[in-house]
């Protein structure tokens, strides 16, 4: 479960002064649910997810992930989270198996457990053909599968996806979408950020529209359609962001 309470993050920039990346963002994600964080570039999606993954510390507000406080129990939070972003890459000089094992070890797993789990993930993701090849020679699809396996090696209860399909071709993006659905089916708590309207329509149980660092609207797709009188997600988003603008 994820619970964000008035999460606020302010950066200080020499030229631009104080930048409020997120302002009092509050939401809740329960197990077996995909929460879609929808927003344009610079809306505060990545900052929110980095706060939840404890990569950043909140300026104000608080959050708990899998029952652990993101500030006080940061290491425990990270032990229960799988973080996948389009911007995160693989170590080119390691093989897929070595990459997965590395993250398994960092998550405190025993060598035997890593071996079993790698085998299972390779079966599920159809990775056997390239498991012992170096990542710098991989296609986008192979890289995505390896990234997914790396994220899942310790079987986290919470999954955080930060625009995971950005820059991917249709086939690679479909692999990701299928994988996100699998996570929900296994009862994991999932938060998924994107600026692609169709993805939230297809994937997300609850949608939060973030703009200018603030969460402006939240609800299921049906609830948002009813509230804003629009069928298309894009129209709803424009209405929400436009009202604010």
């Amino acid at each position: 479960m994820i619970e964000a309470r008035h999460l606020t993050k302010t950066f200080r920039d020499k030229k631009r002064g104080e930048i409020h990346a997120t302002e009092a963002v509050s939401f809740q994600v329960v197990p077996g649910q995909i929460y879609g964080l929808l927003g344009a570039n610079g809306a505060g999606k990545t900052t929110t997810l980095r706060l939840l993954a404890t990569l950043l510390q909140p300026t104000a507000g608080s959050a708990t992930v899998a029952g652990f406080d993101v500030v006080r129990d940061a290491q425990h939070v990270r032990a229960h989270v799988g973080f996948l972003a389009a911007s995160t890459a693989l170590y080119g000089r390691l093989t897929a198996r070595e990459t997965i094992a590395y993250f398994g070890k960092l998550n405190g797993m025993a060598a035997e457990d890593i071996q079993h789990r790698t085998q299972r993930l390779a079966d599920e993701l159809d990775m056997h053909e390239f498991l012992d090849r170096r990542c710098d020679k991989f296609s986008t699809g192979m890289k995505q599968k390896t990234s997914i396996a790396r994220t899942l090696i310790h079987d986290p209860v919470v999954m955080i996806f930060d625009e995971p399909t950005v820059g991917l071709d249709v086939m690679a993006a479909r692999t990701i979408v299928r994988f996100v659905r699998d996570c929900r089916a296994r009862g994991k708590t999932v938060i998924y950020s994107t600026h692609v309207m169709s993805e939230v329509e297809k994937l997300c149980d609850v949608i939060g529209i973030i703009h200018g660092g603030r969460l402006l609207a939240e609800g299921t797709l049906e609830q948002l359609r009813d509230r804003f009188g629009e069928q298309e997600m894009e129209e709803i988003f424009v209405k929400v962001a436009g009202e604010e603008g």
Partner: peptide, 14 residues
């Protein structure tokens, strides 16, 4: 630059 730092920072190591 390669984008591997974020992945390692999101692991539970101190």
């Amino acid at each position: 630059e390669r984008g591997t730092m974020e992945a390692i920072l999101s692991s539970p190591i101190a």
